[in-house]
Simulated scan of single mutants.
Amino acid sequence: MDMVEVEGLRIAYERAGNGPPLVLVHGYVGDGPRTWRHQLDGLADDFTVVAWDAPGAGSSSDPPPDTGMGEYADYLARFIKNLGFDRPHVAGLSFGGSLALELCRRHPDIAASLTLTSAYAGWRGSLPSEVADQRLRQALALADLPPEELVDALLPTMFSESTPPEVVEAFGASLLAVHPVGFRAMARASDVDLREVLPGIEIPTLLVYGDHDVRAPLSVAEALHAAIAGSELIVLRGTGHLCNIEAPHRFNEALRAFLVGVPDRR
């Protein structure tokens, strides 16, 4: 893992390959390399692929407890600038997708394209209010419990039932390294409504979702697709929330084809 300092925080990241930069942003559980391993390995022949550990995850420092989505977007913008990237592609999964949307609002000149995977317009912007309430209550309660209980509660919701057990267990290991402070911060940051951002997205946008996703179901995907003009929606059949891990070859093929065509779409 490499390190860079951002606003006094140590930010860890893994980098692979050469070519146009692609920045990968993980969800509110796990870390960058274990969320995006197949993309770091599978796309490095065409792109400079970077997966960060968000503040409060993996090997990165914890942020202030009151860090919101706006502050996370500022951290991400500074991280990208510190790496010297000019107009990278940005791909976010789940919470990382919401963060990518906020990045586009607060720093509209940074991203060349946007890929939203199993993403929300914030929990409040994509889920019924009672579901958003339950998500936040659950996350704040789990942050105070042993990591094994967090794994037992959340891991089954991340994959489809057909996923090989070894794949599920490998990702589950990353959840055991949870940072309670960072987990609370990302959960609270997720509890926002970003729907007003969607009509203002003017860069090429790809949406990738699994049809067996119980956390961000296809109704969420369809709402974002309808609200982001010119966006493309790809559904990976037979996959759940972490569709990039369950179907890495199909995911990588879809992402590669989209990114190669970005200059034409612009």
Rank of each mutant, 00 (worst) to 15 (best):
K81I: 15
A121Y: 04
I80S: 03
G122K: 06
S113K: 02
A121W: 01
K81Y: 14
D74P: 11
P128C: 14
N82F: 15
G68T: 01
G56S: 13
L83S: 01
G92I: 13
T117H: 10
Y72N: 08
A91K: 02
M69R: 11
V131L: 02
D41G: 09
L76Y: 09
E71R: 03
P128T: 14
W123K: 08
A121Q: 02
L114F: 00
T48F: 02
Y72Q: 02
A57E: 11
I110L: 12
C104E: 15
V50T: 12
D41Q: 10
A111D: 01
L116A: 00
G84N: 00
V50D: 05
R34D: 04
S129H: 09
H89K: 10
P65K: 08
A73E: 12
T115N: 08
E71C: 11
R87V: 04
L101C: 09
A121E: 03
S118G: 09
E130L: 09
L43A: 07
A54V: 07
G56Q: 07
D109Q: 05
P55W: 04
S126W: 15
P65L: 14
V49H: 05
F95R: 13
A112Q: 14
S98M: 04
L43V: 06
D66I: 05
Y72C: 09
S113E: 00
E130R: 07
A111P: 06
S98G: 08
D41P: 11
P64Q: 12
T35H: 12
S126G: 10
L93D: 01
P64R: 07
D66H: 04
W36R: 00
R87L: 12
R87W: 10
D86C: 15
R106H: 05
G125S: 03
V50K: 03
D109R: 11
Q39L: 06
A73R: 07
L127Q: 09
D86G: 15
I110D: 08
D46P: 13
A77S: 11
G56T: 08
